[in-house]
Write a protein that binds this DNA or RNA. Sequence first.
DNA 1: TTCGGTCGTCAACTGAAGTTAATTCCTCTG
DNA 2: CAGAGGAATTAACTTCAGTTGACGACCGAA
Lengths: 149, 149
Amino acid sequence: MPDTPSEGRRTLAAKLDHLFRTVHSREGGEYSFEDVADALRAAGGPTISGTYIWQLRKGLRDNPTKRHLEALAGFFGVPPAYFFDDEAAERIDAELSLLAAMRDASVRGIALRAAGLSPKSLTAILEMVERVRELEGLPDAAGGDTPEE
Amino acid sequence: MPDTPSEGRRTLAAKLDHLFRTVHSREGGEYSFEDVADALRAAGGPTISGTYIWQLRKGLRDNPTKRHLEALAGFFGVPPAYFFDDEAAERIDAELSLLAAMRDASVRGIALRAAGLSPKSLTAILEMVERVRELEGLPDAAGGDTPEE
DNA sequence: TTCGGTCGTCAACTGAAGTTAATTCCTCTG
DNA sequence: CAGAGGAATTAACTTCAGTTGACGACCGAA
């Protein structure tokens, strides 16, 4: 039939919301809409008003123009394809979840010190971490999403 | 080479023009702007007027919206990233040049019969082809573009 | 030649994309 | 509790993406 049931599709708003939730500022909190607007203005490229970014995130407006899509993708450090292709979006989300984990200072500490270890040691440590996760009742694969409070 | 070789970033207009030149209808000619508009209307998705497609190709308008970018990419069978990322565009262009070559009936015949040959035979034949190209004074890499105007 | 069709081009117009500015909602701080 | 400051939200407005319709060039047929 003509149109596939558009059920599984993630909307632009959902993707943008996900970016806001996962990509945080250096201080740790979510970026505000004005933060993003200011950063884009400072970057010299095309600018977007904070209000409009809010509308996009809330889903009141979808269908931005090419230049605005580029600017947004540039700010969050994802390829513009993120907003189009759902498969690419998932792949990128996996990397983003890593970035989200890195927000935890102690995780970051572990990562920094683990860098440079021999493969053998790394797998051993990984195994240990998995065990602990198991003990804590966490899922074994990358969860990614922040648990609802 | 009609195109300026490595003139930095390719514009949207240049990319769209390239698609028109390489992706042809079943009858063999280039698609007309109305053809594309009609096809999109028939596809049920978002529609674009023929005039606007012309404006985009000519470079009078750049900066289309997300939905129109998707529709255009869908029609020409390329991912929307084609219009954003230049590297992706080059990679896809390589495949498109193959498609352009396939328009030549005899090339198509060779390809059809070469399919299924052993790797050894294929490399041998490829080498032969390269020799012939050399004799004919053609560049060794995939040229792609139609030489004349 | 003239008629009829199609396609590319142009310019005026419409409506949605995007902005500006005012208002409400929090959340700190004294 | 007041009230300052900063963020989210709403509404009114402006701008430009996208359409409509007309015109002229081109091509084949009568």
